[in-house]
Amino acid sequence: MEKGVQELKYALVTGGSRGIGRAICLQLSKDLGYHILINYRSNKNAALETLSKIESQGGKATLLQFDVANASETETALSLWQENNKDAVVEVLVNNAGTHKDGLFLWMKSNDWKQVLDTNLNSFFYVTQPLLQPMLLQRFGRIINVVSLSGLKGTAGQVNYAAAKGAVIAATKSLAQEVAKRNITVNAVAPGFVTSDMTAGLDEKELKKLVPLNRFGTAEEVAHLVSFLASKKASYITGEVININGGIYS
């Protein structure tokens, strides 16, 4: 547990019920001792499983249900939580929730474009803005955005997803410059092929041949990087996009 973290200091992980999000929740709790706010949209059983795993390793966590793609729902949930926890401070925000609706741009339906941008890009605004003011007043904060290899190099069949993640990368660099003087860092991590629900339908045997390390990454490896960026050890790193992809984009 990192020194100086008190019980009333929290870390919010959006999309924290499964996959990379769950791994991040567990790692932040284990390494830094934060009380974890596990955001989920609909899969309460998975969120409860994450909660149980955190508690089994001696940590504390709370479920926080809202759809990050819905502005009013997000605002209501965060406002209500803050109202019920007046002395609480969210020191660490991990914008991890995401979705993809892949297909060639020529045939892409407008709803697939909108849904992906709402969940992967607009959610960054909806969740981050209300939590930023308390960080500024406290003069400390860590904002970590989970982006993607697709947002850096582009991927055929993922024009919507790449557009959203690319925009979050640009937002990361810009916001980092706005808040640095208040000791708030804003960084992004860009996973490549990582074994998770998002990659369940991919041909891992073939795709790993594209990766110099010749394997997919794990959610835990991404979580270790996020935990480092959330720690005081990373105090002089901001506005960065750190690739974690086995060398596929180096």
Score class of each variant (00 low, 15 high):
Thr14Asn: 14
Leu26His: 13
Ala200Thr: 06
Pro134Arg: 06
His100Ile: 07
Lys60Pro: 00
Gln6Thr: 13
Gly33Trp: 02
Lys173Val: 10
Phe105Ile: 15
Gly103His: 07
Glu75Ile: 13
Phe193Val: 10
Gly192Leu: 15
Val241His: 03
Thr172Gln: 11
Val222Gly: 11
Phe125Ile: 15
Ala188Gln: 06
Ser235Ile: 10
Glu83Lys: 15
Gly19His: 09
Thr185Asn: 14
Val127Trp: 08
Glu220Met: 04
Leu51Lys: 13
Met108Pro: 08
Ala71Phe: 13
Leu64Trp: 11
Ile54Trp: 02
Thr199Phe: 05
Ser150Glu: 06
Tyr161Pro: 02
Val68Thr: 15
Phe124Leu: 07
Leu137Ser: 12
Leu175Pro: 14
Ser174Gly: 10
Asn95Asp: 10
Asn85Lys: 06
Lys165His: 02
Leu104Ala: 09
Ala200Asn: 04
Asp67Tyr: 06
Val94Cys: 05
Gln115Ile: 03
Arg18Ile: 05
Trp113Ser: 08
Arg41Cys: 02
Cys25Lys: 07
Thr99Tyr: 01
Lys53Met: 11
Thr199Leu: 01
Ala223Val: 06
Asn95Phe: 06
Glu240Arg: 12
Ser56Tyr: 01
Leu202Phe: 13
Phe66Val: 06
Gly98Cys: 12
Val189Cys: 10
Leu78Pro: 01
Ala164Leu: 03
Leu48Gly: 09
Ala11Asp: 13
Phe216Ile: 08
Ile184Gly: 13
Asn187Gly: 02
Gly246Asn: 10
Ala223Leu: 11
Lys60Gly: 01
Ile169Glu: 08
Ala11Asn: 10
Leu132Pro: 09
Phe193Ile: 10
Thr14Met: 07
Leu26Lys: 15
Ile237His: 03
Lys209His: 09
Gly154Arg: 12
Gly154Tyr: 09
Lys109Trp: 00
Ala162Cys: 07
Ile36Lys: 04
Asn214Glu: 14
Ile36Trp: 02
Ser123Trp: 05
Gln115Arg: 03
Leu26Asn: 14
Phe105Val: 13
Ser72His: 12
Leu202Ala: 12
Ser42Arg: 09
Gln129His: 09
Gly166Leu: 11
Leu106Pro: 00
Gln133Met: 03
Ile248Arg: 08
Gly166Glu: 08
Gln65Tyr: 01
Lys181His: 04
Thr155Cys: 01
Pro212Phe: 12
Asn39Met: 10
Ala167Met: 07
Lys208Cys: 08
Thr99Cys: 07
Glu83Pro: 01
Ala156Ser: 14
Ile20Ser: 07
Ser17Cys: 04
Ala230Ser: 14
Ser29Phe: 01
Leu121Glu: 12
Leu152Asn: 13
Leu175Asp: 05
Phe193Asp: 04
Ser110Glu: 13
Lys86Ala: 09
Thr185Glu: 08
Arg215His: 05
Thr199Glu: 10
Leu104Asn: 15
Gln57Asp: 11
Lys165Ala: 07
Phe124Pro: 00
Ile24Val: 15
Ile242Pro: 00
Ala47His: 05
Leu8Asn: 07
Thr74Ser: 13
Asn243Leu: 06
Tyr34Gln: 05
